[in-house]
Each structure stands twice: as structure tokens, then as C-alpha cells.
Nucleic acid binder design. Structure first.
Length: 138
DNA sequence: TTTCTCACA
DNA sequence: TGTGAGCA
């Protein structure tokens, strides 16, 4: 669990993130405007990204390449409180939590689509690049 | 030099 | 989204 801490601690400049994600600074800032990511700031108002942010950016990139728009990406990335909209739960003949179930399945479906083809390949590639970047650091 | 915000193509 | 201006 303390892994979360480190993931959110490592900080990169937007320039590093650009190289790591192949996104332009413009895109990165654009995604931030749409709340797809929420990087921290330095004293000089400089953006600081964590490993989590980088991974998030890579997911966003993958989704965009699949033709998903900002709104769609928000749905996949934003954990929209698990129980903040149970007001519209349908109570049909089969069950009581119809809507909730559908949301969960949809979310899982989208996530799977996003990661289809590189369950491990892309991730390890990313980590490899991160390591190379951190070690070379020249 | 790099990043930032803002505005226009 | 890209690009350029003017700052810090």
C-alpha cells in the first residue's frame, strides 16, 4: 500500500513527461485543463508529474489513439465515486442493483479494451524506458 | 533554457 | 491541436 506514496512522489518536469509519453506539452496541458490529470506545482508554478500521472497520461494517449474523446476518457479514468449515483438504481425482476452492475461492467470493458494487446508488454516497455531515463539521466 | 499562460490560426 | 508572444 505504501507503494501509492512513492508513485505519487516521483516528480517529473513536463519535458520529461513529454519524452516518456510522446505527447506534446500542449496536449499534456490540454488534458490537465480537462481534469484528466492533476499534476502538482513547484514554487515557480512549474508542473510536477508523478509516476501515476505518467501512467495516466499513457492511458489517455492509448484511448485517444483508439478514437475516444475527452468525455469518454473521463469516464474510464475518473473513478466517479462508487456510490454517488445509486439514486437511479433500477429494481427490476432479476435484481436490485441493475444500474450499478452495468456501470461496473462498462467500466471494466473500457479498461480492458484500453489494455487489450499489451496486458504486460506495453507496461514493461514503459517501465523499461522509465528506468533507462532515470539511469542515463544525461 | 525551460516552462507558463494566453490568444489566434 | 499547433504555434507564437511575452514572462518568470
Amino acid at each position: 500500500m505504501s507503494d501509492e506514496i512513492r508513485r505519487n512522489m516521483a516528480l517529473f518536469s513536463i519535458g520529461s513527461v513529454m519524452k516518456l509519453t510522446d505527447l506534446t506539452a500542449r496536449q499534456i496541458r490540454y488534458y490537465e485543463q480537462h481534469e484528466l490529470i492533476v499534476p502538482a506545482r513547484t514554487d515557480g508554478n512549474q508542473r510536477l508529474f508523478s509516476f501515476n500521472d505518467v501512467e495516466r497520461l499513457l492511458q489517455i494517449k492509448a484511448l485517444i489513439e483508439k478514437g475516444v474523446n475527452i468525455a469518454g476518457i473521463k469516464q474510464v479514468l475518473n473513478p466517479v465515486s462508487k456510490d454517488s449515483e445509486d439514486a437511479t438504481v433500477i429494481t427490476d425482476q432479476s435484481g436490485v442493483k441493475r444500474k450499478e452492475l452495468d456501470d461496473a461492467q462498462l467500466h471494466k470493458m473500457l479498461k480492458r479494451e484500453l489494455l487489450t494487446g499489451n496486458r504486460r508488454g506495453k507496461v514493461s516497455l514503459i517501465q523499461g524506458e522509465l528506468s533507462r531515463f532515470l539511469n542515463h539521466k544525461s
